[in-house]
Design a protein around this nucleic acid. Structure first.
Lengths: 198, 198
DNA sequence: ACATACGTGTAGCGATCACTACAAGAAAGA
DNA sequence: TCTTTCTTGTAGTGATCGCTACACGTATGT
């Protein structure tokens, strides 16, 4: 009663997920067709649907995969940095390297993959927007802990400061897609770092 | 030999262009279908193609219309402000008002309408990217004039400063689409203003 | 060896995409 | 009035969209 009968999957789930990630990262959610996905993943539509459910479910599996791999520098920084200011500094500088990497699509998948969408797919864009806002809120909380600990002035608007850093990161992502180099982004990052005294 | 025979156009070009602008602004280039456009414009496909050529040509007519109307606060600020720093300050504060206006779609059409696109429409995204980069270069030139006039330190990296303001504006545009209010954006703007000493 | 269970490839589903052929209708010139 | 010239609405074009029915093949369990 332990094992299951049947043919068993013929392709590697993680490899297929990574291939789909690169396509979605480059062309966005609606800009990527199933034909493109199946070709990049090396499988046919029925295999894709069997393994991932639908284009939308595959996309959010891709988002999870992205957050756990290419985008995990964010979560690692959140876990390792002990103060809000050093966290902001590290996020900005590491984003500059990742967003303008020459071996992967430019920018951040969560920031760019579903900015404008068809009316029927608005909920997909909304879900990514919530992830962006959640990230800003997490930055604000880290800065609030700094404030409570006396590391930054007690009248600091930590929500506004986090939104400012978030805006800078989002702008860096777009400029990476627009052709900016890692050096270009680092110079932007340093302006933001100086602005908040980090 | 002066006048021309024929029926003459039955709809107003500018009204149709404005209606198309609101749809493209909201859903982006590829997220907007011809059915949506014709319904919003109150005309049928043949009239649209007769007047504007194609979906792509209509879109760039819309971009021109946008720059001449909703987005003209940028060109006006460029023309009226006498120093680079006051120009940056004005762009940031006015963008905060425009991007989070409650009577129009959020953000800036040039920034958000074609971030990720199908492979066949990459040239559309590239054209908007060039407009964004041209805008940053124009900001850099204004700041370089400031530097040459001695208003800002002689070792100022004006290109980097302009890229930083451009990134802030682009981030503000996305956060407006993500639900930020005019107040939220103004607080972001003030961080950037303080950062460059404007 | 046999039966069972699963994934896979082929081939095509209805819906929607951007776009257009065509004829009817309406205004201007003679 | 009659002809010319232009725009308009109807109705569709081929192509592509996301998705799936179904038979085949291949593996496992007994």
């Amino acid at each position: 009663m332990s094992g299951k009968a049947g043919q068993g999957r013929k392709f590697d789930l993680d490899e297929a997920l990574e291939a789909a990630t690169l396509v979605f990262w480059d062309h966005g959610y609606e800009g990527t067709s199933l034909a493109e996905l199946t070709q990049a993943m090396g499988i046919n539509p029925p295999s894709l649907y069997k393994a991932f459910g639908s284009k939308e479910e595959l996309f959010f599996s891709v988002v999870d995969h992205y957050n756990a791999t290419h985008g995990n520098f964010m979560a690692i920084a959140f876990a390792e940095e002990t103060t809000g200011l050093t966290l902001m500094r590290r996020l900005l500088l590491e984003a500059a390297e990742h967003y303008a990497s020459t071996t992967y699509p430019g920018g951040c998948l969560v920031i760019s993959a579903a900015v404008t969408v068809t009316a029927t797919n608005r909920h997909v864009a909304n879900r990514l927007a919530k992830m962006r806002n959640d990230n800003i809120n997490a930055m604000a909380e880290a800065l609030t802990r700094d404030r409570d600990a006396g590391h930054i002035p007690p009248d600091t608007d930590t929500k506004a400061m986090a939104a400012f850093i978030g805006a800078t990161l989002q702008g860096m992502s777009q400029q990476a897609r627009d052709g900016a180099t890692q050096d270009d982004l680092k110079r932007i990052a340093h302006y933001a770092i100086t602005a908040i005294g980090a």
